[in-house]
Design a protein around this nucleic acid. Structure first.
Length: 585
RNA sequence: GCUCCAGUAGCUUAAUUGGAUAGAGCAAGGCACUCCUAACGCCUAGGUUGGGGGUUCGAGUCCCUCCUGGAGCACCA
């Protein structure tokens, strides 16, 4: 905005510098910290500092202020601004409040659910997230990944990227073999309980326990793995059947969370390709084949001449079975071949940073040009109070099902109390939307690099900085519009003297597109989560300060516009976070 | 030992990526319901941004160093 005006002023600045024999430096525009009116600011510290270096010693802040004052005098009042002022070394140019308000609300209302959305960039990016292991449970620790990946995908899409949402299921590997062998040995022909994910998870915990505690069990599992590798039909059949049990459970969870994937990769799908890649790596001399006693590995530090930076990557076990890295290499290639991607993002927790770094480096060394476009979006783990890690063995995991059920029940109690006349099924739908929002928000409202400590109290708190707070603002806005029969006046003008909370609300509404762009650039849903809360806060303040329905006709007219624009912005922000915006609650 | 991350109010945290007076929520104390949904709002209190140096007109943000906590470092993913 105001690009022409800025250029015009820059021209004048140049003339001003020449006229006063000042050195020329590049100055950057920024926004005036908002305090009731809008404007753009030009800091003059750089110019003052340049002068300080070249000539007489001056106090930079003082000189910057002098320059700002001189410049204010020099440029006069440019078109489109209401006043120009020198403040603390900045040249501030303020623009008309009512014009701006009018411009913003019209823009929001004409763009609707697309408000905040950027033009298409023509760039394809794949976001791989969730990556659950079959035959295990899904707990709150896994939730952060799904929610983060989903939100980042939404945000990138809104920022103009063509996004492909990918999932990569760990349907094979030692953990699966452990499960299968334990089933074969102790639970043969048992049918799963109704809650499949939980049942599978319980059996996994049992298998894992035996693996480390029961003498001989590990050896049996390893042997079973080799048999799996030989593709023995009974093992394959058992694997397919039990894998399906897991998948059914997962798809239920995704549906509940509102996640959908465009492409699901399976580890089993890339396992053979991985072994081919490993053979090539050995042939090319990059990988060292230490079999039968040692695994196949790549000594990256030795190849690159680095020290303790890339370490050693093991790409195939000594018994010839595949590892994580074995499968990751062909998968990356497959993704680029299949979709002609520009970038490929991996949402994986921070503990795998070294692994990701190694894989990216190996792909680079293999000569893939796109290797520089691989991004590991690392996030910290979810812990329990007292810095406890969730562990199925210790029985400390918080299962998704339990959490959602409990949160929904609490939300339902409140809906019951506030809206007893609603239909029962509608109450449940609302309660679920509120509960899921409450669960998702704390995982999105802190930085990716921060550990999230899960505790029931926070997860079930529907007050303060939380999704229900934001949803509630949306409901209130909708309620006003409903009482006005959902009719909006046509093109009204805003009053010259707006209330401070109206001005603040307009300011927050106007920030959405910029926040989307920022959030997409740094892969941080946190920015949208914070924004949504501040927008809701601004709306609640407006709601308390400025009556709409009882206001005089002309005031009511523009306030209705403002309410509608706020509601739209709230809905759009919540959608970006993967949180529903209910109409009643 | 090496590498990465975090350290901001009692607790959970934000800070437009180096800009103007470090903002919120929870918890605490006080106020406020004949008024569009009180899952709301207002006020009070709470800060040497882990310590110390440095760069800069300007540092929570960048550099160095130390302290504390966490994670990772050859066949689990």
């Amino acid at each position: 905005m105001f690009e022409e005006e800025k250029q015009d002023i820059e021209q004048k600045l140049k003339a001003f510098c020449e006229q006063n024999e000042l050195p020329f430096v590049n100055l950057e525009w920024r926004h005036i910290p908002f305090s009731g009116e809008w404007g753009i600011a030009l800091p003059l510290f750089a110019l003052a500092a340049a002068e300080d270096r070249s000539e007489v010693k001056v106090s930079v802040p003082q000189r910057a202020q002098e320059l700002a004052e001189m410049l204010a005098e020099f440029i006069g009042l440019p078109q489109g601004f209401t006043r120009v002022k020198a403040v603390k070394g900045y040249l501030n140019l303020y623009f008309s409040t009512s014009d701006y308000a009018h411009r913003i609300t019209n823009m929001v209302l004409s763009q609707g659910s697309d408000y905040g959305k950027a033009a298409r960039l023509g760039k394809k990016t794949m976001v791989e997230y969730s990556q659950p292991n079959t035959h295990k449970s899904m707990h709150v620790g896994h939730l952060r990944n799904v929610i983060l990946g989903g939100a980042v995908s939404n945000i990138l899409e809104f920022a103009g990227y063509d996004v492909i949402r990918a999932n990569y299921l760990g349907d094979i590997g030692l953990h699966v073999i452990k499960w299968l062998w334990n089933y074969e040995k102790y639970h043969k022909d048992e049918q799963p309980a109704e809650d499949r994910t939980r049942w599978m998870g319980d059996l996994y915990a049992e298998a894992d326990q035996r693996f480390s505690d029961e003498p001989g069990f590990e050896a049996e599992v390893r042997q079973y793995f080799v048999r799996w590798d030989r593709q023995e039909p009974e093992i394959l059949a058992l694997w397919e059947k039990t894998r399906q049990w897991s998948l059914e459970g997962f798809y239920q969870v995704y549906e509940l969370l509102g996640e959908q994937f465009d492409r699901i990769y399976f580890e089993s799908e890339v396992e053979e390709a991985g072994k081919v890649v490993v053979e090539k790596l050995i042939e090319s001399g990059m990988a060292v084949d230490g079999r039968p006693d040692e695994p196949v590995f790549i000594n990256l530090d030795e190849i690159l001449g680095t020290k303790d930076e890339y370490r050693v990557s093991v790409v195939l076990r000594s018994d010839g079975t595949s590892l994580y890295a074995t499968k990751e290499l062909p998968l990356a290639v497959m993704k680029f071949d299949e979709y002609e991607l520009d970038t490929s993002i991996y949402v994986i927790d921070v503990r795998q940073s070294l692994h990701m770094k190694q894989i990216f480096k190996v792909l680079e060394l293999m000569g893939y040009e796109w290797a520089s476009q691989l991004v590991h979006l690392a996030y910290e783990v979810v812990n329990l109070p007292g810095n406890m890690t969730m562990s199925s063995r210790d029985g400390t995991v918080v299962l998704l099902d339990d959490l959602i059920r409990e949160a929904t029940q609490r939300a339902l109690d409140i809906v019951q109390e506030k809206n007893p006349e609603l239909a029962e099924d509608k109450k449940v739908v609302i309660a679920r939307a509120v509960a899921l929002g409450a669960i998702k928000y704390p995982m999105l409202s802190r930085d990716n690099t921060k550990i999230v400590t899960f505790d029931w109290e926070t997860a079930l708190d529907f007050n303060g900085q939380s999704a229900p707070y934001i949803q509630y603002a949306h409901v209130r806005a909708g309620s006003i519009l409903k009482k006005a029969n959902n009719e909006l006046p046509k093109d009204v003008s805003f009053g010259k003297e707006l209330h401070i909370s109206e001005v603040n609300l307009i300011e927050m509404i106007s920030k959405l597109p910029g926040e989307v762009e920022r959030a997409a650039r740094v892969y941080k849903p946190l920015l949208i989560a914070t924004y949504a809360f501040e927008l809701a806060k601004a709306f609640n303040d407006f709601y308390n300060q400025c009556p709409v329905l009882s206001a005089e006709a002309d005031v009511q007219a523009y306030r209705l516009m403002l309410v509608a624009a706020a509601k739209q912005s709230l809905a759009n922000s919540l959608n970006l976070l993967g949180i529903e915006a209910p109409d009643v609650m």
